[in-house]
């Protein structure tokens, strides 16, 4: 369904607002939970097949922003929103949008590994099974392919029926990545995916993210500025609920246009 939409959206503008280059377009996004907004007036585009890093101090609204992109905030009490998020030119908030379909296209990985209390095998294909994408044999093939992709197959091939909680934290996080990739998303959202991991696994995750592009568009929240520099094509700097600056990573770090950004990337605030 996702690829059909993409092909039906050529640059001749048949779908208003759709672009071959921008898989996600954010317009005037304001989000809050009762009271004052957490995020105000964000305009941003995500070019297809790139990695964008969202950086900014704690409480700057970057995680809230990320969770708006697959509508994870919907059920939070007091949640309100103004503005638009367009996925291939279509509003993700339009009345007919199915959350199941949206989240199949926009996957998410969290800060702390959160495998389900199922076997390792069942974890990888939990989404595949929920969406009814493959039969038993197909699920096994998908599990093997995704575990190979994240580099866990060698270690886990003979442990597929074991509990995921016997794995190390890093292996658990890679397992969660395999689980998110198994349903074939166009976009992968990652909320500080490596902040609880050892350096070797961090490198493995970063390599994986690089390999995922340009097939998948990656949006990653990170507190690790070096990581943003290493992997991201684009960087967006959030501060106090506003998008301060956005551009190619080298420019945001090397020649920031806002004083705030300059102070953050040189370590003087945050």
């Amino acid at each position: 369904m996702g690829s059909a939409l993409e092909e039906a959206a050529p640059a001749d503008g048949r779908q208003p607002g759709a672009s071959r280059h921008h898989v996600l377009r954010i317009r005037g996004l304001t989000v809050g939970f009762k009271g004052d907004p957490v995020l105000t007036g964000v305009d941003l585009v995500f070019p297809r097949g790139t990695i964008t890093a969202l950086i900014g101090p704690t409480g700057s609204g970057k995680s809230t922003f990320l969770r708006t992109l697959n509508r994870m905030n919907d059920r939070v009490p007091g949640y309100y929103r103004k503005g638009e998020v367009e996925l291939d030119g279509q509003s993700i908030f339009a009345p007919g949008v199915q959350l199941m379909a949206l989240r199949r296209r926009v996957g998410m990985v969290f800060q702390r590994p959160n495998p389900f209390p199922l076997s390792i095998m069942e974890n990888v294909v939990a989404g595949v099974r929920a969406h009814g994408l493959a039969d038993r044999a197909g699920r096994r093939r998908i599990a093997e392919a995704r575990l190979r992709e994240v580099g866990l197959w060698g270690a886990l091939a003979h442990r597929l029926n074991e509990s995921p909680f016997r794995l190390s934290g890093g292996q658990q996080q890679l397992l969660c990545l395999a689980r998110a990739l198994a349903i074939g998303p166009d976009i992968l959202l990652l909320d500080e995916p490596t902040s609880s991991l050892d350096p070797v696994t961090v490198e493995a995750v970063e390599d994986l993210l690089r390999r995922l592009t340009p097939a998948i568009t990656v949006i990653v929240v990170t507190h690790n500025l070096a990581q943003a520099k290493r992997i991201a094509h684009f960087t967006a700097f959030f501060n106090q609920g506003r998008l301060v600056e956005h551009g190619p990573t080298a420019r945001v770090f090397g020649d920031p246009s806002a004083e705030e950004t300059s102070r953050y990337v040189t370590g003087r605030i945050g």
């Binding site: 697959n70 994870m72 959350l99 199941m100 379909a101 949206l102 989240r103 199949r104 996957g107 998410m108 969290f110 702390r112 959160n114 495998p115 389900f116 209390p117 199922l118 939990a126 989404g127 929920a130 969406h131 969660c176 689980r179 998110a180 349903i183």
Partner: peptide, 24 residues
């Protein structure tokens, strides 16, 4: 984190309840 993980994979609430939450 279990509920969020299930939600992020696009599991419908009833399915997530049966497959992940109730089991736990």
């Amino acid at each position: 984190s279990y509920r969020e993980g299930a939600e992020a994979l696009g599991m419908p609430p009833g399915y997530a309840l049966r497959r992940v939450v109730l089991r736990t």
